Simulated assay, not measured.
Amino acid sequence: MTKRILVLFVDNSSGVLTRICLLFSQKGFNILSITCSVTCYPNISRMTIVTEGDEAQISQIVKQTAKLIEIHSVFLLNNENIIERDLLLLKIEAKENNKKSLLDIVDKYGAKIRDEFSGGIITELTDKPEAIDKFLEDISSFKILEQSRTGITAMEKGDKIPTIDL
């Protein structure tokens, strides 16, 4: 099974996300990550969905998704030619005896310290999903107090621009 990223341009209206998730569920597809935001057209949202499957399965879900009335366009991104990012906010316990080693790891990954409080810090890291996974692995010896991760957003490199069927 290969991880694939779909970009959907959808109506910015209530119930659209529910219908898309229901379709994925009915077809037996797991959504690994989903992000959604309004585009430069206020009535259109860009949804990025990460799923996995073989080529036949991915082709099927693209075709089925494109049939939904609220969908304007569906694009399957080329995994070899994309910029993908994920955002992690992490609240970590930091005691005087381990704070330096914690800050060394934070520095190593280029994470930003967004808040320092008595007993801990909040960091922000935006990077490829694999780098965030590695950061979490490296920091696992520290007590994580809270974690929030956005999910993947992605765009193909170069001058190729997806069209939105308005």
Rank of each mutant, 00 (worst) to 15 (best):
E130W: 03
E116R: 07
E156R: 04
K67H: 09
I121C: 04
N98R: 02
E84D: 15
M155C: 11
I5D: 10
S73V: 11
E96Q: 15
A66L: 07
T35S: 13
E156S: 09
I82E: 15
E84V: 04
G158F: 09
K95H: 15
T163R: 06
L8V: 12
S13G: 13
D107L: 08
T163N: 12
T65D: 07
P42G: 05
A94I: 02
K160H: 13
I69H: 08
L90H: 06
V7T: 15
L6N: 04
Q57F: 09
I49P: 01
S14L: 14
N43G: 04
I139F: 00
Q64N: 05
C40F: 03
Y109D: 14
D11I: 01
S148V: 14
D115H: 14
E137C: 04
D11T: 05
D165E: 14
T65L: 01
I152D: 14
E124G: 03
N12P: 01
I82D: 14
K157E: 12
I71Q: 09
K95I: 14
I105C: 03
K143Q: 08
F75L: 06
G53N: 06
K27D: 10
E55W: 00
K100C: 03
A94F: 01
N78P: 04
K99W: 00
I31F: 05
E156Q: 15
K27R: 15
M47Q: 05
N78A: 13
E84Y: 05
K3G: 07
F75M: 06
N43T: 14
